[in-house]
């Protein structure tokens, strides 16, 4: 049977050809659905390819990490206002364009379901399972008044810019 043949000798060579980039680092700066979605698609794919994959969530990118059942975050009125204006949580994100007061994201999710494209929540679960390191930015958490308890489970410990840049040194980096 053809399928039981031993592995071909030229295989390691082909692997070596693609060896230079074994790491992927994504800076998730935006909290918009149409940016977080590709971030999750690329990070799950990177991990699936065996790349050591890390996503640093900073500024608006932190709000998608807030648990969906947490409505208001922040300690003072200014921080609270941020979460009042834009509901945090992966299930409540807005589109960067054509949001139409929430109709846009609803239509987008409907289309995704129809075309069997994985939802952001499915991809987040997949990312964790495939070993993507999800790192919240400590400074922005302080700035926006987000506590570790506001955020979903399965994240790495919050870290700073140095950790992010050290990680990024020998990686493909994307700022989304």
């Amino acid at each position: 049977m053809v399928m039981t043949q031993p592995e071909t000798a030229d295989e390691p060579q082909e692997v070596a050809e693609h060896a230079p980039h074994r790491k992927l680092v994504i800076f998730a700066w935006s909290g918009e659905l149409d940016r977080i979605w590709p971030t999750l698609i690329l990070s799950t794919t990177g991990a699936a390819m065996g790349m050591e994959t890390t996503v640093f969530f900073t500024f608006w990118g932190l709000f998608p990490l807030v648990r969906d059942d947490v409505r208001i975050t922040g300690e003072n009125w200014m921080q609270k206002l941020l979460s009042t204006m834009d509901r945090p949580g992966l299930e409540h994100l807005k589109l960067g364009k054509m949001n139409f007061a929430g109709a846009g994201p609803a239509m987008m999710k409907h289309l995704a379901k129809e075309h069997k494209v994985a939802s952001p929540s499915e991809l987040m679960a997949l990312a964790k399972d495939l070993g993507v390191k999800l790192v919240p930015c400590q400074m922005t958490m302080d700035l926006l008044g987000l506590s570790r308890e506001d955020l979903i489970d399965g994240l790495e410990d919050p870290a700073g810019a140095t950790t992010a840049l050290v990680e990024a040194q020998d990686a493909i980096t994307l700022f989304i």
Partner: peptide, 14 residues
Amino acid sequence: KGFNCPLPIAKTAQ
């Protein structure tokens, strides 16, 4: 069958 990128590859990795 029917599923779109990145699921076929991501699920294969699993």
